[in-house]
């Protein structure tokens, strides 16, 4: 008996397995709900492991695809960096061009408004080597008709006057210079005085008023009075910041913020000639209240 079973063991096991599977199939086909319940129990038990495996699989897949993407991204990154650099330089160029354009438009506007005036455009090429003297060298000299004493202006207001001339260059004393003096008038109250350069560091001006009770207030606009030998009437000088009485209370002094930004001064206009007795239109300070 034992020898028979041993001899036919493989066949017997196969038949047994087939029978068990058949019985199982026939049983589970009928009691489906119970099987699903069983399956649910198993799923519940193994779900953490399943989730972990799924997570691992997903992450591995992502990692593999990321490695693939890495090279593409690196290339894209380089490309974007290059483009960013290009855009940044373009932005800078644009800002520079816009600033220059604004300056030139101002100059053109100034020239148009002052039709009967003869203005010579010039570029500032150097400043004074001493920090406490404020002069600048422009690239136009006597060959272009520039002469000592001529006023130098920009659309924002008065810059200074020419103090020395060579054939190709001229030295301009800015109104900030401690030795500069400009005859000026407070446009609102018509109080007159002289605007003196205070110091180059603060960049402010001192308006020494002639009258005893001048009625100058902070915020007032100050323009050239035309009483000065060099500056035509009506050029904008700046705006009053504060007013104070002098030592003995007899006269008043106002501190003025210049209308011209001397740190950004590049192109200026030399007033070579202007009709005597005329003043600049109100936009440049003359007659403005």
């Amino acid at each position: 008996m034992g020898g028979f079973l041993y001899r036919w063991r493989r066949l017997l096991i196969t038949v047994l397995v087939v029978m068990v599977v058949t019985v199982s199939l026939s049983l589970t086909a009928r009691i489906r709900g119970t099987v699903i319940g069983l399956s649910n129990i198993i799923n519940t038990v193994v779900s953490p492991a399943e989730s972990s495996m799924a997570f691992l699989g997903k992450e591995t897949g992502t990692a593999i695809s990321s490695v693939g993407d890495l090279f593409t991204l690196q290339q894209q990154n380089q490309e974007l960096k290059r483009k960013l650099l290009e855009y940044n330089s373009m932005k800078l160029e644009l800002a520079e061009v816009l600033a220059e354009n604004g300056q030139l438009r101002g100059m053109v506007g100034l020239k148009k408004n002052l039709g009967s005036w003869h203005l010579q455009p010039a570029i500032i090429i150097a400043r004074n080597p001493d920090s406490w003297f404020n002069t600048a060298v422009i690239d136009q000299g006597s060959r272009s008709g520039v002469q000592t004493g001529m006023a130098v202006i920009v659309p924002q207001g008065v810059v200074g006057r020419v103090v020395a001339v060579t054939p190709n260059t001229a030295t301009v004393m800015l109104i900030l210079d401690p030795k500069s003096g400009v005859g000026a008038v407070d446009v609102r109250s018509q109080s007159t005085g002289v605007v003196l350069g205070q110091d180059p560091v603060t960049g402010l001006l001192e308006f020494q008023l002639f009258s005893h009770k001048p009625d100058v207030l902070p915020g007032d606009v100050v323009a050239t009075s035309g009483l000065s030998e060099y500056y035509p009437k009506g050029l904008l000088v700046g705006q009053v910041l504060s007013v104070s009485k002098n030592q003995f209370g007899l006269t008043e002094t106002a501190i003025i913020k210049p209308s011209v930004d001397f740190n950004r001064l590049q192109t200026v206009m030399v007033v070579e000639s202007h009709p005597s007795g005329t003043s600049i239109p109100p936009i440049f300070g003359g007659g403005q209240s």
Binding site: A126, R127, N128, P129, V137, P200, V201, T202, G203, N263
Partner: peptide, 22 residues
């Protein structure tokens, strides 16, 4: 040094702050 002081440094430093290269 003077060329630098009159033409280059005033472009970098604000008015009155340009240092002395001399």
């Amino acid at each position: 040094a003077l060329l630098m002081q009159v033409a280059l440094l005033p472009q970098i430093f604000p008015n009155g702050y340009a240092p002395n290269a001399v």
